[in-house]
Each structure stands twice: as C-alpha cells, then as structure tokens.
Design a binder for these strands. Sequence first.
DNA 1: ACCCAGTACCTTGCACTACAAGGTACTATA
DNA 2: TATAGTACCTTGTAGTGCAAGGTACTGGGT
Lengths: 113, 113
Amino acid sequence: MTKFNLENAEAQMRKGILEYCILLTISRGEIYASDILKELKEDNLIVVEGTIYPLLSRLKTDGLLEYRWQESTEGPPRKYYKLTEEGKNSLNHLKKAWESLDKSIKSLTKKTS
Amino acid sequence: MTKFNLENAEAQMRKGILEYCILLTISRGEIYASDILKELKEDNLIVVEGTIYPLLSRLKTDGLLEYRWQESTEGPPRKYYKLTEEGKNSLNHLKKAWESLDKSIKSLTKKTS
DNA sequence: ACCCAGTACCTTGCACTACAAGGTACTATA
DNA sequence: TATAGTACCTTGTAGTGCAAGGTACTGGGT
C-alpha cells in the first residue's frame, strides 16, 4: 500500500526548475559547483552534489556552459563555469517558460479561490 | 552527440507542478478526466491522457481523491473525482511549497538583473 | 612521517515522472 | 453495420534527481 509522500511531491515540484536556477546563478558571473550549491541553499533551494555535477556536465556538453580550471589554496582545483552565448539564449527562453508557467498557476489559483 | 532540447527543458519545468495543478482544478468541484484536460489546456498547461490517468489513479490510491461513476448520454460512463479531506490538506501544503518556490526564483532573478 | 578533517571533483544504481503509442468500450449518426 | 466521437486505461521508454560511494588535493595536529 503506497502512502502519499508530501516531501517527495514537493521535491518533484523543484525538479526541472533546477536547470533554470543554475543557469540564473551562473549568469551572474564565473562560479564553481560548490559555491552554486551554497547560493541556491541561501535561497531555500535544496540541491545536492550528486545532482549538480552531472547537470553541469550535461549543460557543458550541450554547449550552454564553458569552464576554466583554477588552482585553490584551500583544496583541489576548481572548475569555474560561465554561460556561452547559446547559454544566454537558452536562459532567456527558460525565463519566458517560467513566466508562462507562473501565469498559468496564478490563473488556476484565482479561479479556485 | 546530444543537443540541448529547449522544448524538453520546458517540459521538465512543468513536471511535478502537474500534480498541484490537478488538485487545484479538482478542488473547484467534481470533475472528470477529460474535462480536467480541457481546463488545463485553457490555462496553457500541456497535458495528455497518458499522463493524467495514471496520476489520478495514484492520487486515489494515496487517499487524496475519491470518485463516483456517472452515466453519460454522449458516450461511456465518466469518473467524477473530488478531493478527500486528506486531499485538501495536501493541496494546502503543495500551495505553500509552490509559493516558497516562487519566492526563491524571484529572489534569484532579482539578484541577477 | 603519518593521519584526519575539509574541500572539490565525479560515478553508479535506483526511484520517480511524463509521454508516446496503443487498446477497450460505450453512444449516436449515417 | 460501419464510422466518428467520447472516455476510460495500460505498457514501454526516456529523462531527471538523489543516495551512496569513490578519488584527490590542502593544511593542521601529533
């Protein structure tokens, strides 16, 4: 017997939005994975390492991101990511998609209340 | 070589939100699957049959929804769904989750611009 | 010299979701 | 008795996030 899992449902809600959030964060300037995680946590977005590394790799392979290595005095070298032109374009599209979705939900909520 | 697929990315964005949208729609009163689809399309939310039927079944199994059969003069009988008390509770939680997410994105966007 | 904590990268296997494609069955109309 | 329209449902696949684990660099303590 399955039981409705609210935490899971909320996690599902965050899915898919993540890509948009990461592109948004990188658009502010060069940044590396661990710091992206910290930034997102500050805005109450829960993400973990196992999620972000494969995602960054995929976005790099897809041509939305590029990176350079930089030495660190506090540990291993870091990969600093930034958006490519294509990445900036895609971010703009995702922004429109988000706004459209936001509008749809607001419309639905309005009808309901 | 994979290529970034914007439509897919936008579809991913809608994932997880769907459950919330369906509960919202049903909370307005008894309704059956095909009409839920029409309502969501009116608000620019793309959903298809193969998505909604398993989802409704799951929400019923989880105790968030209940339904009754009703004959139709225009075709086969329909399943009219409505929220249970637990369903109303979960909807409230999902609403809060959505608002939190919305807030996070707005905060991120603000920093960026 | 050695170990350990902290940082930063990455991979593998699993669970979950949406979708495409197909199927069943009822009604009304020609 | 076909055909179109409605409404239900299932199966297989692709894509995503996560938990858990692994590698490797730095610096501080003993």
